[in-house]
């Protein structure tokens, strides 16, 4: 595999791992949720890079599913967990 794709994917994975700190630190629930959003975007990028690097088209489909469902968790969070009736 070309050095470019693997190194780039590694950088993105490091970005994800660093983002984990935000989940653990909080402070509000939304901050943790944001980190999960970040994982979605980075995950898409990693999959696309690997798809090119390994010459494996299937990974694009997985990236597509990632992208389609990226909003689902945030919507559920904003509407159900934090939204809805006032406490």
């Amino acid at each position: 595999m070309n050095w470019l794709y693997s190194t780039a994917a590694l950088c993105l994975l490091s970005a994800i791992v660093a983002g984990l700190l935000r989940i653990l630190r909080g402070p509000t629930a939304a901050d943790s949720m944001l980190a999960a959003q970040l994982f979605g975007t980075c995950g898409v990028a990693i999959l696309l890079l690997l798809s090119k690097g390994l010459d494996w088209l299937v990974l694009q489909d997985i990236a597509l599913v990632f992208a389609l469902l990226a909003a689902l968790a945030a919507v559920a969070f904003a509407l159900r967990t934090w939204g809805g009736t006032e406490r």
Partner: peptide, 18 residues
């Protein structure tokens, strides 16, 4: 926090399966 970690775990797990 556990739920958010679970979502992240799912994403990383998916990468691992790849």
């Amino acid at each position: 926090r556990a739920v958010v970690l679970f979502i992240s775990l799912g994403l990383l797990m998916s990468l691992a399966w790849v």
